[in-house]
Amino acid sequence: MTHIIELQHVWKRYDTGGEVVEALKDVDFYADPGEFVSVMGPSGSGKSTMLNVLGLLDTPTEGTVLLDGKDVTDLTDQEMTTQRKQFIGFIFQSFHLIPTLSALENVEVPTLFGEDPTARERATDLLERVGLGDRLHYRPDQLSGGQKQRVAVARALVNEPRILLADEPTGNLDRKTGRSVLDLFDEIRREDDVAVIAVTHDPQLGEYADRTVQLVDGRIQ
């Protein structure tokens, strides 16, 4: 089976003005369709950099990124954007919802760059699926933290991605709410065969993940 996403011997270096910082060092990583992988490690270990490379938001200094078996390392910015829209959904720790838009409108945002006559129907179905069918027209300031995270999950899924990347998805949630979001991730990967990759400090993700990868000082342990 072809891995849905793979990093081969990936290095990422940043020149911070006189000093070169190695954020990733010879990283090999993969995830398969329907797999839940958690990436854990201390602050500054390179987790966010790795997530950005996996999400085609950043390019490696060395090494190869494969998306569904295809080398996407050296694509143009426009080609990267096309691949992200087709394959990848993002969930951010601080939700990044637009405060002036309703829950439904926030979920529709990724579909706005093109003609998509089924977008509103999909957005409505997803909000109902995450338990917010009665909150479609609520703005973010009318929602709890857990509800905002569920809107963010629905938004990440609206383009029917094959990979879900989550940055500290339970970081701003209490334990019970965090568990309900993780239950939702588990349902999505089982029912829709979506690979879920979550960067986290939260040990309860380990109960849900098929495997946990430890990243320390830019290297996978």
Rank of each mutant, 00 (worst) to 15 (best):
E108M: 15
E105N: 04
I5W: 09
Q214W: 12
S102I: 08
Q204P: 12
T81C: 11
E105Q: 11
T64R: 15
F95M: 00
T59P: 00
K47M: 04
E191I: 02
V39Q: 01
N159C: 04
L157I: 11
R129I: 03
E79T: 14
L165R: 02
L164F: 05
R162K: 10
P140H: 06
T118D: 14
G63V: 14
D74E: 15
I220F: 06
V72M: 15
V27C: 13
R190I: 00
V107C: 01
D134T: 14
V213P: 00
F92M: 02
V194W: 07
N159S: 02
E35L: 00
F36S: 01
Q214M: 12
M1F: 11
L182Q: 04
T76V: 05
L126R: 03
T170L: 03
I5M: 13
K47E: 06
Q83P: 10
P161R: 03
E168V: 10
H96I: 00
D134R: 12
L75E: 13
D26R: 05
N172E: 14
G44I: 00
V72Y: 12
Q86K: 15
H3N: 14
E207L: 08
L97K: 03
D26P: 08
E79R: 06
Q86T: 14
G17H: 07
E207A: 13
V21D: 07
R135A: 09
F185G: 05
D15H: 13
A154Q: 03
D71Q: 11
E191W: 08
D217N: 12
E207H: 07
E160A: 15
M1S: 08
S43A: 04
I91W: 10
A31G: 13
F36G: 05
G18T: 06
T82W: 09
L112T: 01
R135L: 01
L51T: 00
T118S: 08
E19T: 15
Q204W: 15
D186G: 07
V153K: 00
L215D: 01
D217F: 08
T2G: 05
E79A: 14
V130K: 03
T73E: 06
Q149A: 01
P203C: 02
M1C: 10
H3V: 11
G206C: 09
F113Q: 03
T100L: 09
H3S: 15
A154D: 02
L173C: 04
D186Q: 03
T73K: 07
T2Y: 10
T200K: 13
V65M: 09
D71F: 14
I91R: 02
L112Y: 06
D32M: 12
K148F: 04
E168H: 02
E207C: 06
D15Y: 13
G55Q: 00
L165C: 11
E128Y: 15
H3G: 09
L24H: 11
L182W: 06
G206T: 12
I88A: 00
P161N: 02
T170W: 08
G133K: 02
E207D: 12
R84M: 10
G17C: 10
H9Y: 07
V109P: 00
A154C: 03
R162P: 01
I91H: 06
I98C: 00
L165A: 12
L97M: 01
G171F: 06
R139W: 13
D58Q: 06
F90E: 07
D217T: 04
T73G: 12
G114N: 00
V72C: 15
Q147E: 14
G89F: 05
